[in-house]
Write a protein that binds this DNA or RNA. Sequence first.
DNA 1: TCCTATCCATTCAATAATGAATATCAAATG
DNA 2: CATTTGATATTCATTATTGAATGGATAGGA
Lengths: 300, 300
Amino acid sequence: MDRNVDALDWTLLQSFSAVVEAGSLSGAARKLGQSQPTIGRHVKQLELVLGVDLFTRAPRGLVPTVAGLEIADMTRDMQSAATRLRRIADGKAGDLNGTVRITASVVTSHFILPRIIADMRQVMPEIQIDLVPSDTTENLIFREADIAVRMYRPTQLDVISKHICDQPMAVYAAKSYLDRIGRPETLEDAARLDFVGFDKSDVIIRVLNDFGLTATRDFFAVRCDQQAVHWELIRAGCGLGGAQTIIGDADPTMERILEGQLQLQALPIWLTAPQALRTNPRIRAVWDYLSEALVQQIDA
Amino acid sequence: MDRNVDALDWTLLQSFSAVVEAGSLSGAARKLGQSQPTIGRHVKQLELVLGVDLFTRAPRGLVPTVAGLEIADMTRDMQSAATRLRRIADGKAGDLNGTVRITASVVTSHFILPRIIADMRQVMPEIQIDLVPSDTTENLIFREADIAVRMYRPTQLDVISKHICDQPMAVYAAKSYLDRIGRPETLEDAARLDFVGFDKSDVIIRVLNDFGLTATRDFFAVRCDQQAVHWELIRAGCGLGGAQTIIGDADPTMERILEGQLQLQALPIWLTAPQALRTNPRIRAVWDYLSEALVQQIDA
DNA sequence: TCCTATCCATTCAATAATGAATATCAAATG
DNA sequence: CATTTGATATTCATTATTGAATGGATAGGA
């Protein structure tokens, strides 16, 4: 047994973590503000202490081994704790200058947040914004972000959250597509047209079933899981598809379908942040701004 | 802005973490195998970098400030990730020697595990066992342990788990108590006796209600949330109370009550471990041993 | 009240970690 | 095929970090 477990120097882990993320010793050295030989030594020593090879040395950089990848999962946890620690400390120090990281679904990041962030920057120029578009699972949301904009109520315990608004949804199609195919006047008409679906999720199928239309996975003409691309497929005239009205109505090339007959359920918008960051004034400021801006965005 | 966020040296955090746990610079230094001045400097520099006071210097040691405590939550996360990292690496290195940390409820730790662990040590003397009795909430279980013995099915995602057995339960009372009060022959008789309850949990109340006895919180003569103490209260003759038969039957001063009429639901035993540790042969060995031993314990 | 044990801060010599410079290699580029 | 780019290892002087020793201070016990 080689000394105490606690005696494992965290500096080695920090360097290791940076190498995994950067993909090279040099890159990691730049990230950490240190020199390449130092990082190289750290990695070498960590491999020595743990008795495991962590990387295979390749000419273009270091590629993690299987063991290296598993260990990287742990250092990622440490990394996210460390960055959050920094945020907490910043909050205590009362420093308003700095960065706030916002994560949101890809679609929201694409179509909704840019304008809001642009305005926010004018009001609070001392706060920089990092936007992280991501459709990752719930418990990984805060690995890289301070505030999350999500379409569901969070179930985690250590977060504060607020229901902002409900975004209305509607079914859209490209005008060019409708010109070619004809405009459906009844649900049955629509059922004969093409639909753009999701690859994995069966949300759309369930919605259609609710309206009395039998739909299976084969029902869809085109499928794509990336929601932003999903919308582009609809825009390009691949068929019908659902979208937030705030996105659909803003696009002059698009047209609502069966407005009265096919009412989709509104999408709830939740703002979420880790409990520990509630005292950070900078994050608080962005939170408050987003709360208002997202509502106005809908009303407009 | 003071340099990059990533430039915060993890060594400082490690020292800080050790100081919080040890309660003093000297203690932390011993833990980490470093000198007291070094740790002191690390803490001082961390306070400088973060711009926050982390401790109030007291003559008997360092007491964390409010900010220090919040930040300690984060370093605790890092700490647990680091120790788990060590376990993963040990597994990869194929080293069977070393320690396995087991956590279990206070009662299980007290009455069931000691014998099993004693036997296990004879079979696998190269493996040391740390036993952590704890009734903490589910998602904190693995902060300090490799394997958890729990009385419920785990709901976390990143764990492997196995249903070992179901421990029969029965209602007990001290013989001396029954000699004094008289032995109840019907449920109604029993309802007039004293019960030992839990302070917060309302499990017992619900069970009694299921048997047609109306019970409220006031119904109990004595209440205590520490389950091991709860059992001692029953042993001391404070009243009736439920317990695993394996515990109750082993005690000659205790007696089952209303054996046929008051059948309590059996307590499931689950073995749980973090997914990431499934490849660690040492932990695997203990896991396998516990799986068998816990079952035999019941059958015997 | 004095003694002891334990703690933190400071000093300074010794040590360990660092980085600039350099050699070497491999892949991409024209 | 030669060139450029970006990578890793190695060396050695420099720098920063470290720890033994010391002093001061406090709480608990005889």
